[in-house]
Write a protein that binds this DNA or RNA. Structure first.
Length: 154
DNA sequence: GCCAACGTTGGC
DNA sequence: GCCAACGTTGGC
C-alpha cells in the first residue's frame, strides 16, 4: 500500500466539498500533467491513502485524508469541449488522461500548514516532494516515514 | 533536437 | 497582484 498527497484549490474543490459529496466520494478529474498522470494511472492502488492538500489559498496545508476506492480509468472531462480541462488530443479510443475515485477518510483535527511542514525540511521531512523548490506536482508520493511523522504532529 | 516564448502553478 | 519556477509548444 502506498501513500500520496493530492492538491486541490479549495475555491475549486475543498475537503468540505468532498465531505458533502454522496458517499463522500468523488472522481479526481482534471489532472493534466504527465508525471501526475503516471502516478495516477500506474501506481495508485485501491486502498492507498492520500493527504488532501489545499493549495493556492490563504492557508495552504494538509487538511484531510482520503482513500483510493477506484483505480485509474479514463478522465472523461478531457473529451468534453465545454469542460475547462478539455483536451482535443485525448479521445476515448486512446485516452491521454486518467483519474481515480477517492473517498473521504477523515478531516484532520487541525490544518497542518505548509509553513510548519517547511520547518522540518532539513529534518524529518527531508526529501518530501511537497517541499522541493518550485514543486508544482498535483499528485505526489509520500514515504511511509513522512506519512507517519506528519500524522504525529497533527 | 534546441530553445525562446508562452501559459500555468502556487506561495507570498 | 506579483513573480519565480516549471512544463509545453512550435519554429527552425
Amino acid at each position: 500500500m502506498n501513500y500520496w498527497l493530492i492538491k486541490s484549490e479549495p475555491e475549486t474543490f475543498s475537503i468540505e466539498d468532498l465531505k458533502a459529496e454522496p458517499r463522500r466520494t468523488t472522481h479526481w478529474d482534471g489532472v493534466r500533467n504527465y508525471q501526475a498522470r503516471n502516478f495516477i494511472r500506474d501506481e495508485m492502488k485501491r486502498g492507498d491513502l492520500a493527504f488532501f492538500y489545499h493549495s493556492n489559498c490563504e492557508q495552504p496545508g494538509i487538511v484531510g485524508i482520503v482513500k483510493v476506492v477506484k483505480e485509474a480509468y479514463p478522465d472523461h472531462t478531457a473529451f468534453d469541449p465545454t469542460d475547462a480541462h478539455y483536451d482535443a488530443k485525448s479521445d476515448p479510443s486512446s485516452p491521454r488522461w486518467y483519474m481515480v475515485d477517492v473517498k473521504l477518510d477523515r478531516i484532520l483535527k487541525r490544518l497542518i500548514p505548509l509553513a510548519e511542514l517547511k520547518t522540518h525540511a532539513d529534518g524529518a521531512l527531508r526529501d518530501f516532494a511537497l517541499l522541493r523548490r518550485g514543486n508544482r506536482l498535483s499528485v505526489m508520493p509520500v514515504s511511509e516515514q513522512h506519512w507517519r511523522f506528519i500524522l504525529g504532529i497533527e
